[in-house]
């Protein structure tokens, strides 16, 4: 019974995990990402230091850590978005579906169609309507089929729990929505191209508590179909909506385990000090 107390999640999510609270190194059958000895530099500064981690498929993995610990950078290394910043360099490998994302014959655009991303600041395209925003990824990637587009539009908005709120306003500008709706619109936009993974970079940090809860609920629903990696500053959020938690500190992965384990009995002292809010 005591083991269950730290858990702030629903039974649905947790039952299995609780049965073995002390052997919780995640050991998925087939990880979504196999990260091996990944290091990353901005110029001369090493931002990610030799990280090895297997990110489980169809689970929510939270990445926590203080500002500047490299958690966002690590997330971007998973779909090569870090390459937008000039003078970055990566060593090591990220295996995704059996392929190293960093092998020279891999096109980052193709990677990003399979590994979607949602950002901290909601960013619907200001010139586009709600519908256009959802479909922009498909259209600009060459999909012309009207029926398919309409079907994806409704499906994506439904999955993003936004359909009922916007179905009569699909022609209105995306930026006319509230902050929380805009973020769900961005999630709909990301899932419209049917990726396998959703990377979320502090998706709720700019939202009010109610909008935040809606996003968290959405994450819990989406994990049936997607592997989700979420970077968050909010430890309660990590403990509420993730299955596994990785703690980063100064570019290094300090601890990776079952979320219940991390928040009830972390193995590493640095993790304990960080999550309990002690002086570092």
């Amino acid at each position: 019974m005591i083991e269950t107390l730290p858990a702030m999640q629903t039974t649905r999510v947790r039952t299995v995990d609780f049965m073995q609270p002390l052997t919780d190194q995640p050991q998925p059958d087939a990880p979504a990402f196999g990260v091996k000895n990944l290091s990353m530099w901005y110029g001369a500064k090493e931002a990610i230091k030799n990280v090895t981690i297997d990110v489980p498929a169809k689970r929510v993995t939270a990445i926590i850590g203080p500002s500047g610990c490299g958690k966002s950078t690590f997330l971007r290394c998973l779909n090569r978005m870090h390459e937008l910043v000039p003078r970055t360099r990566v060593e090591g490998e990220v295996l995704f579906a059996g392929q190293n994302l960093y092998s020279p014959d891999v096109d980052p655009a193709m990677i990003r169609r399979r590994i979607g991303m949602v950002f901290q600041k909601s960013n619907p395209f200001p010139t586009m309507s709600i519908a256009e925003n959802v479909l922009v990824g498909l259209k600009l990637n060459g999909v012309r089929d009207r029926n398919l587009l309409n079907e994806r539009l409704e499906k994506s908005l439904r999955m993003a729990a936004l359909w009922s709120e916007v179905k009569d306003d699909l022609r209105k500008p995306g930026i006319s929505l509230s902050g929380g709706q805009q973020q769900r619109l961005c999630i709909a936009r990301a899932i419209a191209i049917e990726p396998e993974v959703l990377l979320m970079d502090e998706p709720a940090s700019a939202l009010d508590p109610i909008a935040t809860m809606k996003i968290e609920e959405l994450i819990t629903e989406l994990k049936a179909n997607y592997t989700i990696v979420i970077v968050t500053h909010n430890m309660q959020q990590a403990s509420r909506c993730s299955d596994f938690t990785a703690f980063f500190y100064m570019g290094a992965l300090i601890e990776f385990a079952n979320t219940a384990k991390i928040f009830s009995n972390p193995t590493r002292r640095q993790t304990e000090d960080y999550i309990t809010g002690r002086f570092g």
Binding site: N79, M81, L84, A109, M110, I111, R112, R113, R114, G116, M117, F119, K121, N123, F125, P126, T127, V136, G137, L140, N141, C186, R189, A190, I193
Partner: peptide
């Protein structure tokens, strides 16, 4: 953020510039 969002959708650089940024 708009460039990032478009590139993260797997849209090519050139299409991102024409259809998102320039628009």
């Amino acid at each position: 953020g708009y460039r990032e969002a478009a590139l993260a959708l797997g849209i090519s650089r050139w299409k991102t510039i024409v259809h998102i940024v320039m628009k």
